[in-house]
Design a protein around this nucleic acid. Structure first.
Lengths: 211, 211
DNA sequence: CGCATTTTCGATAGACCTATAGATTCTATA
DNA sequence: TATAGAATCTATAGGTCTATCGAAAATGCG
């Protein structure tokens, strides 16, 4: 009753929510830079100019902060992908939109995405599985669209949908790791380049000559 | 003079070398699984059934072990890529070989590669730069081969060599992260699938109809 | 302004981790 | 088998980190 018990971890008014947001944002930044285990709660507090202990008014543990950062990282992806899947468009166009949609969070919230990609494996079992489900859902959406393309004849029949999906997601997720240091290409150009690569390949197919 | 000073860290006979190898191998395994900062020297010792303190007979620090693991991780890549570059073959064939060659270490020494890819950023400045140079060399080799293809007309003139290189390395390096959990496809099939994707794309180019 | 509530703070317990030091056991050889 | 040197051990200093607790400051409301 009269004990300390900040109910804040359960009920949250908008002020608390906003401050919690700032903390999550700082956590995302530091986790992204130094990795989860390489990050001290002190470092997170430093970003905000507050004391290390004060963080615990908003979050029960460092692990909980990681969980929240990862959750926001995935949601950026899932929402967009799910929306593209619902569209009424030919598969190749959907794939184009999926690629652009997947690059969006990488562009707008790179820290969250980076943490989601690189640090989610350090989550406790329960939440890692939850995040894993979303992650597999994203994969499945790419796979479904590619399969649809094979079925309607717009994608080559021999193509391995699963392998292609893994390849495409691989190149997309890699952007997170080179965008920072590389000559920061604009995201539209990257998307366009990827789409051309995936759709048409880079080889000059001199079909008349070759067969 | 008569002090303890095990010279082992500097002079190494073959016995010491072999044991050091075992330790590095254990370190690679644990680093790969839990990340550098998530790994305790105790966990490395556990793998070998030896005491935590005994590791320090072979290595001056945990950081030095990471350095060695990363070095071996890169060397697997660089050697192969450099050899392919020297070959006298058309660019597209070189690219095919580069892809296969890059997948080889991922297949045969996944722990080292994983650590190299995910943990190298935690190396101290000096060695991180050294590793970084090798890493950039690998990128450059892919880029050179693609550029050569553009010049000799076997690769489409509009292709962005740098972006393509980043895409290809992205999909290749991603293999490390799904090979373990996914239905472990054989590496040859993965290589073949990637080559087809990169060279020809997945879209049905109904050139007669489309233009 | 005075009081209740919310938010932040200082201090630190308790756990854990790297790396060192000196003792001890193992190994090989004469 | 006695001995030197190599390899491993036990113990722990010294440091860091998370999370807690109760006090203090800030906030907002009557």
């Amino acid at each position: 009753m009269t004990k300390h018990t900040p109910r804040t971890h359960f009920v949250r008014n908008s002020r608390v929510l906003r401050r919690a947001d700032e903390i999550i944002d700082a956590a995302a930044r530091v986790f992204a830079q130094r990795g989860y285990h390489g990050t001290t709660t002190q470092a997170i507090a430093d970003v905000l100019g507050m004391r290390q202990a004060s963080l615990y008014y908003y979050f029960p543990s460092k692990e909980a902060a990681l969980e929240e950062v990862c959750a926001r990282g995935t949601d950026g992806f899932v929402g967009g992908a799910e929306r593209v899947l619902q569209l009424d468009a030919p598969p190749l166009e959907k794939l184009t939109l999926l690629i652009a949609s997947h690059l969006a969070p990488i562009d707008t919230m790179p820290d969250y995405v980076r943490v989601f990609i690189n640090e989610r494996r350090y989550l406790p079992d329960a939440s890692r599985k939850r995040i894993g489900r979303k992650s597999r859902r994203i994969e499945r959406i790419f796979e479904l669209v590619i399969e649809a393309g094979i079925e309607d004849g717009s994608i080559k029949p021999g193509v391995d949908a699963r392998l292609t999906m893994l390849a495409v997601l691989g190149m997309l997720n890699a952007v997170i790791n080179w965008r920072a240091c590389d000559q920061c290409q604009d995201i539209e150009a990257i998307a366009a380049g990827f789409v051309r690569l995936v759709a048409d390949g880079i080889a000059v197919t001199n079909s008349a000559v070759k067969r």
